[in-house]
């Protein structure tokens, strides 16, 4: 199988990357891990005239703690996220979810930035960025800006990035105290695209009442779906099975908008969303540190 011809650039610094992107504009695509782009090129679904390979830009592959956040370079491999001790300690939701991304062979190459920018509605990392309230740093030749994850995803495979910008860094706030987490998805086989998945966070106050909650779904619309009404209805409440049932019903029936596919009808996706919402809320509650 042969992708269409392209010009290939392998810069070593962010400065060179931005110069190249400035010269070539939207005709040039960034090559991060290549685990979604290269298949699309093999099928000739995409035929960029130039590729700017980010794999030699070493300054983009860090994972480090910085006060109360973790900073992750856009080219950090998914496999590194999986085994990073700071991520395990301070963003346990991310630690739990990363092994659901495809297979180790894919995660060894796939990057956090590549998956975020690809903005596949069925992917895990975009959902996690919203659940974790991440901030994303974009750069062009002249400036840089921070974009909140909730403003970053602009629909199917579309983001807020401008044609001359590159995503360089992801800032992940530490999980708040007394926060429970849970990530679950259902796929036909391990490593396949999930038919439905949800990232769930619950924070309780001293009186065990919910003071914060987040429910974000994958493969449930044209991007990550943040069930704001459902999570809002948990706030101030003592969470019990009855409330969980009604929250799960609301999220799965009113807030998500799955399209259905050959593996799962829309009704089945809604059913999965309801079951997963209940399961993840229960698990998150169990995990809230005493």
């Amino acid at each position: 199988m042969k992708p269409a011809s392209f010009d290939y650039y392998a810069p070593n610094t962010i400065e060179e990357v931005l110069d190249l992107k400035h010269q070539h504009g939207d005709d040039a695509k960034f090559l991060a891990g290549g685990q979604s782009l290269v298949p699309a090129m093999n099928f000739r679904i995409v035929q960029p005239s130039a590729l700017i390979d980010l794999n030699r830009v070493n300054e983009l592959s860090f994972i480090k703690e910085d006060k109360n956040v973790i900073r992750v370079g856009a080219m950090a491999r998914e496999r590194h996220l999986e085994f990073d001790s700071s991520i395990k300690k301070y963003t346990p939701l991310l630690h739990e979810a990363v092994p659901f991304i495809a297979h180790p062979q894919i995660r060894n190459r796939g990057t956090i930035g590549g998956s975020i920018v690809n903005a596949d509605p069925a992917a895990e990392l975009p959902v996690l960025m919203i659940a974790l309230n991440a901030r994303l740093k974009a750069k062009n030749k002249n400036a840089e800006r921070w974009i909140d994850a909730k403003d970053f995803f602009a629909g199917m495979f579309t983001t807020a990035l401008k044609p001359d910008e590159v995503l360089v860094e992801i800032e992940l706030p530490f999980a708040e105290k007394n926060t429970g987490w849970s990530f679950m998805e259902v796929a036909p086989r391990s490593g396949d695209y999930a038919m439905m998945g949800v990232a769930t966070l619950v924070t309780l106050d001293k009186n065990k009442k919910c003071k914060f909650a987040k429910l974000v779904y994958l493969n449930a619309g044209d991007g990550p779906v943040d069930a704001i009404e459902a999570s809002q209805s948990l706030i101030g409440e003592t969470i019990n099975d009855k409330l969980i049932e009604s929250v799960a019903s609301h999220a799965s029936e009113k807030e998500i908008n799955p399209f259905g596919n050959i593996h799962a009808s829309i009704d089945f996706q809604r059913h999965l969303a309801k079951v997963l919402t209940q399961k993840t809320l229960k698990q998150a509650l169990e995990r809230v540190s005493k």
Binding site: Y8, Q35, P39, R79, H103, Q105
Partner: peptide, 29 residues
């Protein structure tokens, strides 16, 4: 399959398993 699903082309890239059909030869320089 040549799109990363079947695993038949798996090699080790710097000691880590990877799909050789999802990597360009120039990247292995």
């Amino acid at each position: 399959c040549e799109h990363g699903v079947c695993g038949a082309c798996t090699i080790m890239f710097d000691s880590e398993s990877a799909r050789s059909c999802l990597t360009f030869a120039v990247q292995a320089d």
